[in-house]
Nucleic acid binder design. Structure first.
Length: 279
DNA sequence: ATGGCTAGGTTTCCTAGA
């Protein structure tokens, strides 16, 4: 089973890129961020033609997230329960495992009660703009809300994947210029503390389970030929629950679509996962 | 150098991204 996450920076502009990428990389679930469109504008028909169904949580101009999948999504939840937010940043759903018997895909309660499903959370973490700003305070409050909710989600769904645009680097290895970015947005101790706190809840960074090329990044600024010079940061992550850790067989960042005409500034991150054993 | 692109809306400049 393959899962991927991609901040597309406007699905309106990037729809053809996403469809091309899915044709070449037929993942089971694709998490999209920064749709920048409302639900009524979501291109369901184009994805249906490619064999995918979609759960979307859109917003005009900013934010917006979606889960694109080959199998139906169950128990869809939008945003973080318990955290009041007027931005569309999170969408979650349970998916049938590819090897699950047909009867387990029959309905939502069987997935939940028999623990045969995979819970997937697609998240677009706040940018934060600048340490000390109102948006930074919002980012920290949002991270508090996410952690409180995840604590219980992990109890409900042991097989859980949290993927998306985190807008946080783990450490200096995720930054092309650690000295220049020290204490800057995405690289502050406070943000990294929050990211580590998610790990402490019982999640692991799929990327670091494997040997990766040096200077592996998922985002490059549009300016100053940053992609060509590989001046980027790794801020898009796939975290899997501890129960899934030994089932992850690969994880990579696909830089190919960043070479397109009019690319997103982010690249997709892809994880390969074996099905969890049946309880 | 507080700039350098890109996208969307309030559109010929503004906010926001990261």
């Amino acid at each position: 089973m393959k899962l991927a996450t991609w901040n597309v920076n406007s699905l309106t502009v990037r729809l053809a890129h996403v469809l091309d990428w899915l044709a070449a990389n037929p993942v089971d679930v694709l998490a999209l961020q920064e749709l920048k469109l409302t639900d009524d504008k979501f291109p369901h028909a184009a994805f249906a033609q490619a064999g995918y169904s979609c759960q979307c949580f859109g917003q005009k101009t900013y934010n917006g997230v979606a889960l694109i999948s080959r199998t139906p999504a169950w128990a869809v939840v939008k945003n973080i329960p318990g955290f009041d937010d007027d931005m569309a940043r999170v969408i979650s759903a349970t998916f049938t495992l590819s090897t699950a018997p047909a009867e387990y895909s029959a309905n939502e309660s069987s997935l939940r009660n028999l623990n045969k499903g995979l819970r997937v959370i697609c998240a677009y973490f706040p940018n934060g703009q600048e340490p000390g700003s109102d948006k930074f305070e919002y980012k920290l409050a949002w991270l508090d809300g996410l952690r409180a909710w995840l604590r219980t989600e992990l109890q409900t769904y042991p097989n859980l994947v949290l993927m998306g645009d985190y807008n946080i680097t783990f450490d200096d290895a995720d930054v092309w210029d650690p000295e220049g970015m020290r204490d800057q947005i995405h690289c502050t101790d406070e943000e990294r503390y929050h990211l580590q706190a998610l790990i402490t809840l019982g999640l692991v960074d799929a990327h670091r389970l494997f040997a990766q090329p040096p200077k592996s990044y998922s985002w490059w600024d549009y300016r100053d030929m940053a992609f060509r010079r590989n001046r980027g940061m790794r801020i898009d992550h796939i975290l899997v629950s501890n129960a899934l850790k030994t089932l992850v067989t690969a994880c990579h960042i696909d830089k190919t679509p960043r070479k397109n005409e009019r690319p997103s500034d982010h690249a997709p991150v892809v994880v390969d996962l074996q099905d969890p054993p049946r309880a």
